[in-house]
Design a protein around this nucleic acid. Structure first.
Lengths: 147, 147
DNA sequence: CTCTCCTGGTTGCACAGTACAACTCAGCGG
DNA sequence: CCGCTGAGTTGTACTGTGCAACCAGGAGAG
């Protein structure tokens, strides 16, 4: 019936999208990898998070986050400040440079999407956005996907 | 206005999805990587493609495809047959094992999506599927994303 | 107070996926 | 025959990732 066909299509198209995103991420956005971008965005929204928080939130290994954070710090986009309350902890903050790069990359991505979605009626855009939010908001019994 | 908000949301949610897909691909589907899965699917639809075709189709380097193909062959999922017409060419075919694994993995993925989308009204599913197809079908001036 | 356990983070190692460049081999056009 | 082109392979390097071992700071039990 129609439902199965629709689910099949969704599965197929999401797979296609994921594959392309992966393939093109490095080439299209050399400024900032997907994960770096996400981490930076997260910090922009909620400054002063710990690396562990990020790892938990994105289901990444703490070692991965540690290295990403180290790279971002080397690039001068974030700062690690010791937490006076707990000397094990490093609190992460965006630097001005980080904020600037983030804004610029966001704008680039945004522009790409705008172009791609240019001839969509607003009604469709709003519905599509809603569906995506709803899709991502799902949290089944597998908390493995994080967020 | 509403359009910009919607595009912003779409950008954000697509990014989230891509990040999660990347993170969970290996863990959730250890049987077959995303790319392997895609290549196998492609071969199921159009048997007898050449490695170069796949590379072009997915904007992957031919060396990457070469290695992926080699791995799939080692795993017994595809066969490489010399093309009698042109001895430079290797024509790729799914084996029975490949077809079986592919079917099983597809079913697993499908089930995950079905569960995730279980309480969506059919109308929404069909619209969402349509939007995704439309989104992926877009081919701007950057043919880099392939397909 | 000290000993043990817990927690945040780093580092060593391994591995997948990828690109680029150099190469081999087969076919093609002069 | 000779050089050019195209298919595919291989060497090398880099990124992102996880796991396991480790280190250092805190917290509670005795």
């Amino acid at each position: 019936m129609g439902t199965d066909r629709a689910v099949e299509t969704i599965q197929r198209e999401m797979t296609t999208f994921a594959r392309r995103a992966r393939a093109s991420a490095g080439r299209l956005h050399p400024e900032l990898s997907l994960v770096s971008y996400t981490l930076l965005s997260h910090l922009e929204e909620r400054d002063g998070r710990r690396a562990t928080d990020l790892a938990a939130h994105y289901s990444l290994d703490k070692s991965t986050v540690s290295r990403q954070v180290a790279a971002l710090e080397r690039a001068g986009l974030i700062e690690r400040r010791p937490d006076p309350e707990d000397h094990r902890v490093q609190v992460l903050h965006l630097t001005d440079a980080g904020r600037r790069i983030l804004a610029q990359v966001t704008e680039n991505r945004q522009a790409a999407f705008r172009e791609r979605l240019a001839d969509w009626p607003e009604e469709d855009l709003r519905r599509f956005a809603g569906y995506l939010e709803r899709y991502n908001a799902w949290s089944g019994e597998a908390p493995a996907e994080g967020n």
